[in-house]
Design a protein around this nucleic acid. Sequence first.
RNA 1: GCCCCCAUCGUCUAGUGGCCUAGGACACCACCCUUUCAAGGUGGCGGCACGGGUUCGAAUCCCGUUGGGGGUGCCA
Length: 460
Amino acid sequence: MADAPRYRFAPSPTGMFHVGGARTALHNWALARRTGGTFVLRIEDTDEARNRPEWTEGIIEALAWIGISADDPHFEGPLYQSHYAGAHLEAAERLYREGFAYYCDMTPEQIQERAKAEGTTGYGGWSRDLGLEPAPGRVLRFKVPMGTTVVHDQVRGDVEFDNGVIEDFVLVRGNGTPVFILANVVDDMSMGITNVVRAEEHLPNTPKQQMLWTALGHEPPVWAHVPVLVNEQRKKLSKRRDKVALEQYRDEGYLADAMVNYLMTLGWSPGEEEIQPWSAMEETFRLEDVNLSPAFFDLKKLTAFNGEYIRKLSPDELFDACRPFLPDEWGDEPFRSMVPYVQERLKTLAEAPSTVDFMYVADPEIDDDAWNKAFAPDYAVPLLSDVVEAYATCDWDHATLKSTMEQLMERYEIKLGKAQAATRVALTGRSVGPPLFEALEVMGRDESLRRMRAALERIG
RNA sequence: GCCCCCAUCGUCUAGUGGCCUAGGACACCACCCUUUCAAGGUGGCGGCACGGGUUCGAAUCCCGUUGGGGGUGCCA
């Protein structure tokens, strides 16, 4: 118990919160909760130029949306990296003092020139033995030792790096600020992080971080690098090219549960049935079972998941979920009554308004193709006239409305599918929509008859 | 260029030497059901990248090739 694991999620607030980040957060969250450990949220806000406070808010809100809540006892934070700058510099100072790092006065341009001249690439450790003192403009570099570094990775097994190909990397910039690699390690150390679960893009700098842990006198954490998420071109999902903002999916009517479930199936399988509640996935998720190759973020499949989750909601839940997507001027009715009939037709909540909009306007726009097709048959007008007449007096419930039409259509030897077409267009202006008799019932006799008569008049 | 990672249907995956004539899901197609559209049901299409080994036996182990991806900043 004294050694309850401490996981962490360390996003940088440089843009909208990303689906890839969400998946990594979910992995950490599942592990922290199942093991009775802690999920530390650390905001890496040390990129002075790119980070903005509203992005931090966005991250916290997005995490809450997918169920990673600051109210949960397993949650710790948010902690802000910028608050620990002193510790980062202290560690840098110590590394310098103990001979693990040295100052270098070469500019990036000079480095490039010299490398070119020598026919090499990167920094060749040229200032390593110059014994330069700290001074403004000089960077502090880590003195990468000889040998090999083996990273024990829970997803990938042991990964070996030849230290000879790792150049002496910068720890502190010429302006005196610490770089990510140092800040990240120092924070993980001081926050007692035991498990680092992050995306594969960090694997190449893991040996550097591991060297820092060792130089600073600590045992490195347990590493795990999960594969990245890619687009259809199989490139890492990027904020610039791809639609990746979690918030955007929320605004387009995706359910958090569907998103969470879908994200978890990328690179991992929850078992026989892929639609699983979070509580179950939290129990079964294991890093050892995570796939090793990049996974395509497939909007089609996410949408399919979303449809399934929408169908699982109760009518009341679905109504509440849809409410924000309905125009403000619309009242709850008749949508509320229509919910059961549109439920299995929705793939996203945002589609809700278009399934019932004909009920909210007096004269819905008429689709000409639908109209022409519905009124093309000879029986269309006479049948509609009969229906209008019968509907004027019959009981007004969907069962009666249906059986009434069935009786009237008999003499034309057609099926209900054809018989209802004209009435549907008269009512909705379209050829498709929610079940007709149910819609009639909800809409009421007066308005229904008015529209049907208007249609007959229009025909002439 | 160099370093690292990876490779099962179009996509996400199951599969850890014999249960595989490779299973499921999404997408697609057909049919059924039907009050349009959906939803649902049934069926179909479609894959172990390639070449060598190891083994009685390989999708599973090893090597190579090819192909993808990630990284290579005084960004995180």
